[in-house]
Lab assay of single mutants.
Amino acid sequence: GSLMYASIFGNVSAIIQRLYSGTARYHTQMLRVREFIRFHQIPNPLRQRLEEYFQHAWSYTNGIDMNAVLKGFPECLQADICLHLNRSLLQHCKPFRGATKGCLRALAMKFKTTHAPPGDTLVHAGDLLTALYFISRGSIEILRGDVVVAILGKNDIFGEPLNLYARPGKSNGDVRALTYCDLHKIHRDDLLEVLDMYPEFSDHFWSSLEITFNLRDTNMIPGSPGSTELEGGFSRQRKRKLSFRRRTDKDTEQPGEVSALGPGRAGAGPSSRGRPGGPWGESPSSGPSSPESSEDEGPGRSSSPLRLVPFSSPRPPGEPPGGEPLMEDCEKSSDTCNPLSGAFSGVSNIFSFWGDSRGRQYQELPRCPAPTPSLLNIPLSSPGRRPRGDVESRLDALQRQLNRLETRLSADMATVLQLLQRQMTLVPPAYSAVTTPGPGPTSTSPLLPVSPLPTLTLDSLSQVSQFMACEELPPGAPELPQEGPTRRLSLPGQLGALTSQPLHRHGSDPGS
């Protein structure tokens, strides 16, 4: 009898404990919600809404976190579960008819179910419309201010047509639940991603989709105040780019002037030289400038040598048109050559190039014969006009050509200096018209024969001689050997007369 009593008592207590286990969990969670309300000092109306929603959600799901349970299964099984949970929507909604099984599984994985109690606001006026909503159960109302403009029910759709707008718009009203509602919502990016994977279904979906109420604000059109608020930074940046392009296009129409201050000032006329910023005076940081632009901040801005204009002085008759350009485009679109090309026009420029290279940067340069637009006047290309890779490749080509020119210049200078040193070592320090008596009659020769300089066969020296023939050397430049009979510069000019005159010897006659 005691054994029977113990078994009955144990079973009854276990049954009672299981009955009250759900209630215990409910009270535990309710205590957490109330502690949250007390800690954050939530006001009474919002506090009442929180408690009511918790009670309804507990009775609806029995305190089970559906998302946590669903995430515990593998992905393939999750797709089947989501397809079952959203079967009513996918079967009865017209846009989803005719979709393949794979497309429906992908869509079912992207849908999220939302449960809303009465009085809950789903979308506020001015919120971004980031999702498309399908009503599965219940009814909602749409308000503009305090005026109800629409009441939607089961199988209705609200949001915005995503295929017509590249960016999400703003809501033009509040969406509030009238009863307990079940909503299926899919985010904008998720829907577009699935439709991109199934393009054959995309056309059918957009053609058959009928949005019951379009929440997009109709005033959000390009150029409206609301649109400016939504895309303020983007609009200002776009206007700045367009104004920069218009100014650079105007600059290219004036090829007669070359400016070292950047493309923003290349198009300024002579009357605007004294102004601080020219056409860019209202925004000094709008356009890029070269490193020399920092010198323009000092006094005497109108007389600054940074602004270059072609000189009108005539060229000498024998002067060549100019050196070879550094870039391939210089032959086609440049009416002034790079300062480095002028360094190779003569030997005198070679000796004085490194010492006063900055001073020569603004000297007169030889002109190319074609009066085409200036290379320095070409505006900086924006990322939309020329690819970045093209600019980098041009810079690399320019750097390689500069290296080759520097190597060639160093070799030419070394060769010229070597020839000058050899000339100085071969010439005796001094010569006299009267020579010392020699031991015999073989001493009648006034000077030792001097062998002429070897013929220069280097390509670089031939180019130097060509430049010497075309360029007029300055007075202080050293002379180079030329073709024809060679003669030492330090010898007297009348050596031929010395050989014809008898030598005057000093000596005593033994017979006297």
Rank of each mutant, 00 (worst) to 15 (best):
D127W: 01
L128V: 06
L129F: 01
L129S: 01
L132Y: 01
L132G: 02
Y133A: 02
I135R: 02
L152Y: 01
E160I: 01
L164E: 14
A166K: 07
G173H: 12
A177Y: 01
A177P: 03
L178D: 01
H184T: 06
I186S: 01
H187W: 01
R188Q: 04
D189H: 07
L191D: 01
D196K: 13
H204D: 11
H204K: 11
N214K: 02
L215I: 03
L215M: 04
N219C: 13
N219K: 07
N219F: 08
M220R: 12
S224R: 09
S224K: 09
G226W: 10
T228D: 12
K239N: 15
T248K: 07
D249Q: 06
D249H: 12
T252I: 11
G256S: 11
S259P: 11
S259V: 07
L261N: 10
P270K: 03
S272T: 12
G281W: 06
G281A: 11
S283C: 15
S283L: 05
P284M: 15
P284V: 10
P284T: 11
P288M: 05
S289C: 10
S290G: 11
S293K: 04
E295G: 11
P305L: 09
L308A: 08
L308N: 13
F311N: 14
S313G: 04
S313I: 09
P320K: 10
G322H: 04
K332V: 12
S333L: 08
D335Y: 05
D335T: 08
D335I: 09
T336H: 08
N338T: 11
N338M: 08
P339H: 11
P339G: 07
A343R: 08
I350S: 10
G355M: 08
D356S: 11
R358Y: 04
G359R: 09
L365Q: 10
C368W: 09
L376Y: 13
S381R: 15
R385A: 08
R385N: 15
P387L: 08
P387A: 08
R388F: 12
E392G: 08
S393D: 04
R394Y: 05
D396L: 07
R400C: 05
L405V: 15
E406S: 04
R408N: 14
M413R: 03
A414G: 06
T415S: 15
V416E: 04
L417H: 09
Q418Y: 04
L419N: 06
L420V: 07
Q421M: 11
R422H: 10
M424S: 12
T425S: 07
V427L: 07
A430K: 11
A433Y: 10
T435V: 06
T435N: 10
G440S: 08
T444N: 12
S445E: 13
L453F: 11
T455L: 11
L458M: 11
Q463N: 04
Q463R: 10
M468I: 10
E471N: 06
L473I: 13
P474H: 06
A477M: 15
E479T: 12
Q494R: 10
Q494D: 14
Q494T: 11
T499A: 11
T499M: 14
P502N: 09
L503N: 11
H504D: 10
H506T: 12
D509K: 07
D509Q: 07
P510Y: 10
P510L: 09
G511S: 10
